[in-house]
Design a binder for these strands. Structure first.
Length: 898
RNA sequence: GCGGCUGUGGCGGAAUUGGUAGACGCGCAGGCUUCAGGUGCCUGUGUUCUUCGGGACGUGGAGGUUCGAGUCCUCUCAGCCGCACCA
């Protein structure tokens, strides 16, 4: 230390004192600083927090959690961002006096390790444990403040024992069940997939085209919770787009179930509709190709053969081709009719692939006048189209649709007469089939009317051609029709969901075994809790062959029935890894409990997670499954919260320097480790946070990290070094003057700014900018009172701690000998937040014409006078009459002239 | 088609409740220190006109409200994300 100081003296030569630092041999060296503090934190277990009952020391709890990492190879830059954001929040909460739980673990089961095992023969456990070691090492080197005492991985028997226990609890409650169903099969990964894991007809993981197979599989009854999953979104502090995605996925629609009877076969076919008000317009009936009754219906009719051909073609068609919304409608008649329950008309039945078996009842009533898809089908098959709802009722219909209805064909239709100016307003409808018929179809005799196929569903709509219901608006009509159907036993109100039950079994090895056995006498028998865990055996051959590789482990498969003691076989499917990660945050609360998954009282002291941080890619799967688990477990009175994650923050992606998503194929992958090696963890963390709002995507730029290193970290270090022996205390000087006052004010401004940006907005980019501004200000006045500079520098170090913990700890220690994380978060001195003068903005007609210095808190009259007298304002008034003067105290004066 | 989001200098981005547009960083230009430097330090940097006083224009576009609009309202254009033949 002494040597460095001497060199500075020599080089400084007594001129401006910002020079000495420049010639110093001592430099900011993260390679020295970072390991030093990491060692201290590890040795002293600084970030551990206890569950002891007296731990209730009056401090408010805060559970800060980043999403469980899947350890594969090395961590990437997205991990660095995720844990940097989380660590800022964890540190900040500690510094403002909360008891913070900030744990870490690993999502250790899963396909990549297993696929690697198939290729290389290395046991998935071995590869996974290696990756875990690499991740753990990285988190240490990044200086993330983790309570390591609670660490675990989901592939450890001491963890999955409880995953199995939860499975049994769900089974007990009939929330886990087995059924044969059409499921998504990935031919590449040789396993089934959950609905949520199929993207555009392809496997989310490997991209292979998914096949549909009829298989017996395990499901969790998440649909029982659809309404609660939907409603409780209102009570949690999540980004709107994530809530929107969940709502969308749950896909609740209200409507009615209406029964259409096939008299010839004497079978009732219920359909679901959201538009029971259009029931009089149902002129035909369509079933999905997968509907179990299609062959039976067609049997003995002249269409039997055509139906077989059509269905077979549909079932073998590639899902994404079949799902294309723009392809022409196809289908064949079934040769049967059903009765429209309100008109008693016999309407023809069809089979068509635009009807989905998975939604509703797999059959629909088709209302071509008011549904685009049905309309397209009716046109293709020359079926009757009957308008039963009229937009706008008696008054000029155009009025209700005209604004913004340009691209809406209804506008031209509703306008009725072609003379109506509104009709000509609708551009670009020429290519729409409806448009060509619209002008003549405007009259309401019902025969040729294909109007309204696209009308919005509003209270202005009125039912027509609907018997006793004609004249009601469509909202009234819906209710009246369904009530009538209900009385007649032909229908009732109903709710439908897009959400399906969660398919949890996988025909793969590297996952949590499902704890049931199959006994010839007793059937399916759950493994008793006392016998858990059912341990995953080691096997020779990982190759999937359409069934789990576990099926070949005969010693393991063959077992005794827990009930009768007879020969039995184990379930060989394993659980979807999303099951493992649906409850891990509970285990952290009580990680070492070996007689229960958790203690309910301990859980009560930590749950829910106060701040969850992760990527949007988990907006549906992981987050929905976890919410389901919590609700189910709460219903079993095993815990006391209704939602796992009270607040959610979704961080944006770090893109490659070229602005593209980082990927090997673009060759734009930035790996965090070389960055940390070169600039240090503090610089890497700060750069990732200063680059922009953390919830937005941002492209990596090497020059940016150099900026942070230079302007923020190295300069703070130099200030601390320079000031370390220029005094003792770092308290705010009692009555600073001149430059010292300026510096002290800036420090207080920064305290206020950093606190607000960090606590309420997650605006870490502007918080860091404020610290840079403070450092710039200390630099700007090298000759100011060292006491003021020491105070400001210590303040900067203190504020920077959540972002750059190593350097901050070092700088703070250089100045004070104390540990910055043991200091309370600084409080801004209100007296220092306002100067005695401010720059008054002088405007004429809203344009800035001058700026003059004015005393803070000056009365309006004085400000008005100052403004009117200012040179710039005088120049622009030149004799015009002042109409009005607006005064905003301590800010501006606007002179309005005519 | 439905739902959600974003448009601000050469670049990333600031701007709290309607009140100085462009904080901070990068880049660029000039200067100082240095044997030298890709280090450090200082100054300047929206566009444009200028008689060097200053003026005009400027937040995707067009209107509107207001003394005053990046911010509020209406319409519109572009891009991104999610879902999608969901009855």
């Amino acid at each position: 230390m002494a040597r460095g100081w001497d060199l500075r003296r020599l080089g400084g030569g007594g001129s401006r004192s910002n020079l000495p630092a420049a010639v110093s041999e001592r430099r900011y060296d993260p390679k020295q600083i970072e390991p030093k503090w990491q060692e201290i934190w590890k040795r002293e277990r600084t970030w551990e927090v206890s569950n002891s009952p007296d731990g209730g020391d009056g401090r408010e709890k805060s559970y800060v959690l980043e999403m469980l990492p899947y350890p594969s190879g090395e961590p990437h830059i997205g991990h660095l961002k995720n844990y940097s954001v989380g660590d800022v929040i964890a540190h900040f909460h500690r510094r403002i006096g909360r008891r913070v739980l900030h744990p870490m673990g690993y999502d250790a089961f899963g396909l990549p390790a297993e696929n690697n095992a198939i290729k290389t023969g290395v046991h998935p456990r071995e590869a996974t444990n290696r990756s875990i070691a690499t991740f753990r090492e990285a988190f240490h080197r990044w200086g993330i403040s983790i309570d390591w005492s609670r660490e675990f991985a989901t592939h450890e028997p001491s963890y999955y024992r409880w995953t199995q226990w939860i499975f049994l609890k769900l089974l007990e409650r009939d929330l886990a069940y087995k059924k044969t169903a059409a499921v998504n099969w990935c031919p590449n990964d040789q396993t089934v997939l959950a609905n949520e894991q199929v993207i555009d007809g392809r496997c989310e993981r490997c991209g292979a085209e998914v096949e549909v197979r009829q298989l017996e599989q395990w499901f969790f009854r998440i649909t029982d919770y659809a309404d609660r999953l939907l409603d409780d979104l209102d009570a949690i502090d999540w980004p709107t787009h994530v809530k929107a995605m969940q709502r969308n996925w749950i896909g609740r629609s209200e409507g009615a179930e209406v029964v259409f009877r096939c008299e010839e076969l004497g079978i009732d076919y219920p359909v679901f509709t959201t538009r029971p008000d259009t029931l009089f317009g149902a002129t035909f009936f369509v079933m999905a190709p997968e509907h179990p009754d299609v062959f039976r219906l067609a049997e003995g009719t002249s269409h039997e053969r055509a139906v077989h051909e059509y269905v077979n073609r549909s079932l073998t068609e590639a899902p994404e081709l079949r799902g294309a919304t723009d392809k022409p409608k196809t289908g064949v008649p079934l040769g049967r009719t059903v009765t429209n329950p309100v008109t008693n008309e016999q309407i023809p039945m069809f089979v068509s692939d635009y009807v989905l078996m998975e939604y509703g009842t797999g059959a629909i009533m088709a209302v071509p006048a008011h549904d685009q898809r049905d309309y397209d089908f009716a046109k293709a098959f020359d079926l009757p189209i009957r308008q039963v709802v009229s937009a706008g009722g008696g008054e000029d219909p155009a009025a209700s649709v005209a604004p913004g209805g340009g691209e809406d064909p209804a506008a031209s239709v509703a306008a009725g007469g072609a003379e109506d100016p509104a009709a000509s307003v609708a551009p670009g409808v020429g290519e729409d089939p409806a448009a060509s018929v619209a002008p003549t179809g405007g009259d309401t005799d019902g025969s040729a009317t294909e109007a309204g196929a696209f009308t919005a569903h509003t209270e202005n709509e009125v039912l027509i051609n609907s018997g006793q219901f004609s004249g009601m608006n469509s909202v009234e009509g819906q209710r009246a029709i369904v009530e009538w159907l209900d009385r007649e036993g032909k229908g009732h109100f109903s709710v439908s969901y897009k959400l399906r039950d969660w398919l949890v079994s996988r025909q793969r090895y590297w996952g949590c075994p499902i704890p049931v056995v199959y006994c010839g006498k007793c059937g399916m028998v759950p493994v008793p809790e006392a016998d858990l865990p059912v341990e995953l055996p080691d096997i020779e051959d990982y190759q999937p062959k359409g069934r789990s590789p576990l099926a070949a482990a005969e010693d393991w498969v063959n077992t005794r029935c827990p009930q009768c003691g007879g020969a039995a076989k184990r379930e060989t499917d394993t659980l979807d890894t999303f099951v493992d990660s649906s409850w891990y945050y509970l285990r952290y609360c009580d990680a070492h409990n070996d007689h229960a998954a958790w203690d309910r009282h301990v859980l009560r002291s930590w749950m829910p997670v106060d701040q969850y941080i992760g990527g949007v890619e988990h907006a549906i799967l992981h987050l929905m499954y976890s919410r389901f688990f919590i609700k189910a477990l709460a219903d079993m009175e095993l815990l006391d919260v209704q939602e796992p994650f009270q607040a959610l923050f979704t961080q944006g992606m770090i893109l490659g320097p070229d602005g593209n998503k980082m990927s090997k194929s673009f060759g734009n992958v930035i790996s965090p480790q070389p960055i940390v090696d070169r600039f240090g963890a503090d610089a890497a963390r700060c750069y990732i946070l200063v680059i922009g709002p953390p919830d937005q995507d941002a492209a990596w730029a090497d020059t940016g990290i150099e900026g942070v290193h230079r302007r923020l970290l190295a300069r703070l270090w130099r200030l601390a070094d320079e000031l370390s022996d220029q005094g003792e205390g770092v308290d705010q000087p009692t009555s600073p003057e001149g430059d010292a006052l300026t510096i002290v004010r800036k420090a207080n401004w920064a305290i206020e700014k950093v606190t607000r940006d960090t606590a309420t907005r997650f605006a870490f980019n502007t918080a860091l900018s404020a610290i840079i501004e403070l450092i710039n200000e200390i630099y700007r006045y090298p000759d100011a009172d060292p006491g003021a500079r020491r105070f400001a520098t210590a303040t900067a170090a203190s504020l920077l701690f959540p972002f750059a913990p190593h350097l901050s700890a070092e700088a703070y220690e250089m100045l004070t000998g104390r540990r910055v994380w043991e200091e309370p978060w600084p409080d801004a001195d209100p007296d220092m937040l306002q100067a005695e003068t401010f720059e008054l903005v002088c405007q004429v007609n809203g344009k800035v014409r001058d700026r003059v210095s004015a005393p803070t808190g000056a009365p309006r009259e004085e400000l008005e006078k100052l403004c009117l007298e200012s040179r710039g304002v005088q120049m622009h008034l030149n004799g015009q009459q002042v109409a009005k003067v607006i005064v905003v105290p301590d800010k501006l004066v606007n002179v309005v002239v005519r």
